[in-house]
Nucleic acid binder design. Structure first.
Lengths: 335, 335
DNA sequence: TTGTACGCGTTATCAA
DNA sequence: TTGATAACGCGTACAA
């Protein structure tokens, strides 16, 4: 590939002049023109590798969403890309399939000297926290909060989301409500569980441990657990699924077993999916203010990247309330 | 960050010895141990930027799927990641939002000296073809074929997919069938249109240009166009939507206008979405053999990356047939 | 306004 | 088996 040298030779100037021409240095218009012409002629494109090696950092921002196939993620990406582009930085996305490959991916990105990372952290425990904290790259976390981690975080009030949905179902007269949780230990899982439990207790209802299912944030396990529940002795009148994909798994399980939603079993969930309107029945769900959250996340990251001194900016947190969107997936038992 | 120098100093050896220790050079077991200990102590991780600058290429493979939010893409990613990982290479994903930012993104990836690219090319026309051809990076295209481009390509027989679906609807007695196409000029759009037209002609039916809608591969335009069609004077008995997202847009439009599917209007489409089973009615659609295609795509790319001489491998093409999955979205008009 | 020389962190060559 | 040194392509003092 053509280097800065080839351009210099072709334009009949020195390499430093070429460099200056590309970096708003003091170069006469005439020579600048000769240089750009020469660059085009030899097909020159600056070697970002060399630039980054020199400067110590690249202009790449890594987005690490955990599971790239969760449609939930598309909304984050769109907003983040827009702002990154405006700041003349590019987004690259790296999938991790949960926590399994996360460390490998982060090491790679670190070694690539990315300018910053936006990460949905999938791990738990103190070693994990320590690991994240030790990464000396500007970093903003979103969605999953890691307790004790001294990093920026943006997310939704998950406890509130679960509580609002549970209260809604309680108001409709439901008493046997099943909660299907994601991976145990994850922030969103635990907060959503707490919201559910709080609403039940406030209504003076006990928690039936048989109706507290443990799954993960993928559809197939939710499908299996729901099937197991509905073929067993205890049958709830309503289910709160901890996320969108799980809700669809649970719904599929109901349908496959011949249950009707909402006539036989009601269903609510947290998080949107595209074409939610086409899933029948239309689900009642809690929606996160993703646009606002994503905008803040990238704004904070850019601030950190452009700041001389990382430590000068203390860790910040933003937690916004969700909204409830009513569908047709809940039966009114009071009538 | 710690460099090879810090390790050398700490281990009391020269930097070249450290380098050798990390690159299966001839180093005694004793010094190797000292070096790995020292590396751990100072928290050394090799600077991939410097390595790549030296070697001229990184170990990153870029996946450029056009629209990252199309669920269609998740299947490609999963398979490709698995094989890349096995070859000790990492995948980064770059979104382009159609053709608009594609060139910018490709330039960036080129400047980053990625090892290779897997791209779903969104452009058309001879200049676009020439541009892609001139990129001197190992490259495999998928899904969209660019006529005349001398590059590897894997994809599905799109003409066949559309023909099979159209024939199916014709067999059920439909005569007024509407075709909604994606961006004009795109390979998949044109082939799918041809398949539709071929099936109609073979059945001795004329093409009604009023029933040939032009949209793009996103849901909202399909929604608008379907709405326009169904509120107009000519009403088809069936619709063939050119992809999954468009089908959902068309379905939503029908529902919003009070039409029932399939009783009033039948619908078929090409490409799967996850939880397709939950969309009511379950759609009849053509599915691509994505696993096979993705496996071949990454295999070919790795071959090119590891080959000394690019030109030694002539451009290859693989086109596999689709399968039809029957749902409940088509009415039988013969009864 | 332009050119020379050095360094970023690494690998490869060659000498010790 | 080890170590000194020259690249890789670029940016930037500093000198001319």
């Amino acid at each position: 590939m053509a280097t800065i040298r080839d351009v210099a030779k072709r334009a009949g100037v020195s390499i430093s002049t070429v460099s200056a021409a590309f970096n708003e240095g003091r170069v006469s218009d005439e020579t600048k023109r000769r240089i750009t012409d020469a660059a085009r002629a030899v097909g020159y494109s600056p070697n970002l590798l060399a630039q980054s090696l020199k400067s110590g950092r690249s202009r790449l921002i890594a987005l690490v969403p955990g599971d790239i196939t969760n449609p939930f993620f598309g909304n984050w990406l769109t907003v983040i890309e827009k702002h990154a582009l405006a700041a003349n930085r590019a987004i690259i996305v790296s999938n991790t399939h949960g926590v399994a490959r996360e460390q490998t991916v982060l090491e790679l990105l670190k070694a690539q000297r990315v300018a910053g990372m936006l990460i949905n952290p999938q791990g738990t425990g103190p070693e994990y926290r320590a690991y994240l904290e030790a990464i000396d790259v500007p970093l903003v976390t979103f969605d999953q909060f890691v307790p004790g981690l001294e990093r920026d975080y943006v997310g939704t009030d998950n406890e509130l989301a679960a509580r609002m949905l549970t209260e809604y179902m309680l108001r409709l007269g439901h008493r046997q409500i099943c909660f299907i949780g994601g991976q145990p230990g994850l922030w969103t899982t635990e907060r959503r569980r707490e919201g559910f439990v709080a609403a039940m207790h406030q209504a003076g209802l006990p928690i039936d441990e048989d109706l507290m299912l443990i799954a993960n944030y993928e559809g197939d396990v939710a499908y299996r657990e729901t099937t197991r529940l509905l073929t067993g002795p205890k049958r709830p009148t309503a289910i709160l699924a901890s996320n969108n994909v799980m809700a669809l798994g649970a719904l599929q399980a109901m349908i496959d077993l011949g249950f009707r939603c909402p006539q036989d079993i009601s269903l609510t969930t947290i998080d949107d999916v595209p074409w939610m309107g086409l899933v029948k029945p239309r689900l009642t769900f809690a929606i996160q203010p993703l646009h606002e959250l994503a905008a803040v996340a990238i704004k904070w990251l850019l601030e950190r990247i452009e700041s001389r001194d990382q430590a000068a900016i203390p860790p910040r947190r933003m937690i916004l309330p969700p909204k409830i969107i009513l569908g047709e997936s809940c039966a009114d038992l009071r009538v």
